[in-house]
Amino acid sequence: MRRILVGIKRVVDYSVRVRVKPDGTGVALDGVKMSINPFDEIALEEALRIKERGEADEVVAISIGTDDTQQQLRTALAMGADRALLVKSDEAVDPLTAAQVFTAMAKAEDARLVIVGKQAIDDDANQTGQMLAALWDRPQATFASKVEIIGDMLRVTREVDAGLETLEVDLPAVITVDLRLNEPRYVKLPDIMKAKKKPLEVKSFADYGVAPTQRLKATHYAAPATRSKGIVVKDVAELVDALKKKGLV
């Protein structure tokens, strides 16, 4: 079976302005809106499109998180994933732990392709896909803006600093997706009902032979430095004067 695994992370919704707790022990997350990491939604959309083109047989949404993460996996099932796997963890895991779990899943599921977002918008680490590719000893095509399957290989266009780079990689492979790969579909109500019947298996780290480890210890959280209030100029002439005063023009 040509199977695609898609990493889904539950994160604070992109529209929430996260604030640091006054005592510096973390960020205030009580009661904030949680969503699928936006990049992971794009990853899932791409997997679904590949399947709809007849180039894959099954799409499996995979995640690591608390029981509440089932909400995001149900959304992924409603979007069109066939089934879901959740490794239960009450603590946030570091990217290498996530990559170890995903590697074990890729092997156990005999995955042809694993697609993940290029970064999660909570820790902004941008590591898991690359680490997974390393541990799985397979190619990585990061920051993808276009994906084509050509027989047993992928042709991927990547958003890089210089512009757009194209790579060819042999399958199985790992793709991390960038913003402009696609626009994820909206979930329709009947699909939400159908998703309730789709299989969602809850697993443990031990099932995949992984001992979760926090390699980097967070010791303090601080609010970023704020910029001091600027001046308002009333017209272009004043703007030019202000720029000249600063020696910028």
Binding site: V20, I121, D124, K217, Y221, A223
Partner: peptide, 13 residues
């Protein structure tokens, strides 16, 4: 930085 720079975290390796 984490959370799009809304928090700065100190980490020990």
């Amino acid at each position: 930085p984490i959370y799009a720079g809304n928090a700065i975290i100190t980490v020990e390796s």
